Structure formats: structure tokens, C-alpha cells
Simulated scan of single mutants.
Amino acid sequence: MRLIIGALVMAMALVSCQTKPTKVTSEQGVVGAPEKLMDGNPTILDVRAPFEFNLSHVPGAINVRWEDFSQQDPNSRGVLQDDLFAISRRLALIGIDPDSKVVVLGKGSLGNGEEGRIAWTLNVLGVKNVHTALHTVARATNPKGDEALVKNKPMWKPVVDESLFIDARNFKAYATQTLSPLKMTGKKKHKKAMDLPVSSLFGLNFNDAKSKVIILDVRASAEYGINNLTKYKNVKAPVAQLEWKEFFTETNALNKDIEKKLESKGITKDKIVMVISSHGVRSGAVTYALRELGYRQSVNFAGGYEQWK
């Protein structure tokens, strides 16, 4: 009997000395961006599909899609809505105004540049403090991991940065390096479209600007090989190709090393870079990246090849 009691006491002592299980929390270190990126309680946007977003997302993030701010015409899906004030009103409802710090989360190289496209859209509307990062950024601003309440901002009128985009008519003019013949594209027509002057790029007249223009195709090499602007006899401007993924690191931060590749393609900071992709998403991401890297004369042809055709 004594032996049995002794064995029971020893077993209880062993159990009491065992290490207690570690409590697992949802808080993680920042992955995909410097820790300071989340400082200042930024508005967090997540551009992934709703299904992916609902499976898992950073607490307080707001799910948006680039299509939410673009036209419905299948031939010009990448062109922003005509009513930019309507977009700014929607942004105000999710807590964004021109002074906001915004972090846009996406899938990085596994996506199609959607986070960069949203960043470009915000820049167009005058929101300048915008950053991109991977959706795996998971440091919660609330230690409990609760969803933060969205605080509305007062309605604001966007100060549109028109230098960030170029319409189909002007893109064609600079791509072909000719002012004639030109026709307006899209639903809006003008009785004297042929008489409308081509807008100057960055304060330069047409002849001076066209000598500085270079077209940058940011689709994948396979897409570029099937069809690109060099196959059109009327295109006179030089065309270069670099895939959009090369402008971002594995953590979805800006890739500063891309400047060497750009220079090898003849793209320097004094050039006017007209960026093109299929429908303005990947090219929007690259235009955002180029501007952040100091290529201040970069523009997104948001209509892309869809509108060019």
C-alpha cells in the first residue's frame, strides 16, 4: 500500500512540474514591410478577392477592389470613373482624405499589381502618403485583434494630378509621333475632335515632348512576345519591356535596384515614360513605383492594350 501511495505522490509531482502550454495569439511580426510602416494608425486597404479577405485579414483592414473605381466599359476597364468626386466621397466614408496615411495590402508577385493600382488611384486623387505591402502583414493595432471601427472623414474634393495618366488620344499621338489623324475614343464624342489640340506633357510642346517619350510595356515576356506596340507600323516611339514584378521586392516594397535595368533600357529620369499593360492595372502599379523612385515624368495609359485595339 505504501508503495502505491508513494507512486501516486511522485506522479502528481511530475504533472505539477510540467511546462504549461504556450498561449497562441494572432499577433505576429510585420512581414512584407518595415515595422514603422504600420506606425501612425494608418488606414489599411486589402485588395484581394473577397473570399480570400474573409478567410484571413489584418484586423481593421478594409476590402476594396481596383474595379470599384474604374469604368464598366469592357473596352476601357482600366480607365478611372469620370466622376472622381464620387470616388473621393467613397474614400471619405472609409476614413481616407488627402492627409491620410494609407497602407495597401495585396498578394505581391502572386497577384497582378492590384495594390499598386490602388496606390496609383489614390495618388491621382491627391492622397500622397501611400505604401504597399504584402497581406501577410499581421501586426494588429489592437492587441486583442479586434476589428477597428471605421471613422468617416468629411467629404473632400479631389485635387486631381492629371500628370499621372494619359488618355487614349494623347497616347496614340505620342506613340505614333504625329498629330494627325486623331479621333476621340470612348463614349464621349466631340464634333470637332480633329481640331482639339493634344495636351502638352509636363509643360513641353508636342515636338519637344515626343523626342523624350519612351513606352514601357510591363506585361510578362510571354505576353509581350505575342503582341506588342513594336508590331504596329505607325508606332514610332521607342518601346521597352520590363515585367511589373521587377519593380517590387519579395516583401512588396519598392525595388530600388530596378534603376540599373531601367537605364539599360534607355529609361532615365529625364525621359517621359508612358507605361502600358493590358488594362492599366500593372501599369498603374509601375507608374506608382516609378514616381516613388523619382521618375517624375511617368504616366499610366490606363486604357492599356484593350483600349489601344
Rank of each mutant, 00 (worst) to 15 (best):
L290R: 01
A49Y: 11
R219S: 07
V47N: 00
L3R: 14
I276L: 12
A61P: 11
P59F: 09
V150F: 02
I166K: 06
T121P: 05
R169E: 01
L216G: 10
G145H: 01
T121R: 00
A13N: 10
F171K: 01
L84F: 08
A289V: 05
G111T: 03
I272C: 03
V213I: 07
Q18Y: 13
Q81N: 15
H131N: 03
R77T: 15
V31Y: 10
H131I: 04
F85P: 06
S199I: 11
L201N: 00
V47K: 04
D97Y: 03
D195L: 15
G116W: 01
F171V: 04
S277Y: 06
T268P: 09
A33V: 08
H279N: 15
H57Y: 05
R219T: 07
W244N: 05
I44P: 05
T121V: 06
T230C: 08
Q28N: 09
V15L: 15
M274V: 14
G203K: 01
A138L: 09
Q18I: 10
K189L: 08
G60F: 11
N63R: 00
F171L: 00
Y174H: 00
V286H: 06
G225S: 13
I94K: 01
T287V: 08
N207Q: 14
Q28P: 07
G32C: 02
L229V: 04
S88C: 07
K191E: 12
V9C: 11
T176P: 08
T287R: 02
F247T: 03
A289R: 02
D97C: 04
R296F: 04
M274A: 13
S76A: 14
D82Q: 14
A148S: 15
N123G: 05
A133E: 03
K36F: 13
L196W: 03
G284R: 04
A193I: 08
V79W: 04
P197T: 01
M38E: 07
P34E: 06
S109R: 08
K261S: 13
D82W: 12
N170H: 12
I276D: 08
Y288E: 04
N54T: 12
I118F: 02
Y232R: 09
S70F: 03
D208T: 13
A220Y: 08
R169T: 10
R169Q: 09
L80I: 10
E115Q: 06
N129M: 02
Q297Y: 07
L164K: 00
T230A: 05
E27T: 12
M194T: 12
A240Q: 06
R89K: 15
S70H: 11
I5K: 12
S16H: 07
G40E: 02
N63L: 05
S76V: 10
W244C: 04
M194K: 14
E263V: 13
G294S: 04
I118G: 07
R169D: 01
I267V: 12
G40M: 02
T251N: 13
N170R: 05
N170E: 14
P238C: 00
T251K: 11
A148W: 09
E27W: 10
D97R: 02
E246H: 11
V9N: 06
K269M: 02
S56H: 15
H279R: 14
D161H: 04
E259K: 13
A193C: 02
D195E: 14
Y288W: 13
L164G: 08
E223S: 14
P154Y: 06
H131R: 09
Y288D: 03
I214M: 06
G111E: 01
Q297A: 03
G284S: 09
P74I: 05
R139A: 11
H131V: 06
W244K: 00
T136H: 07
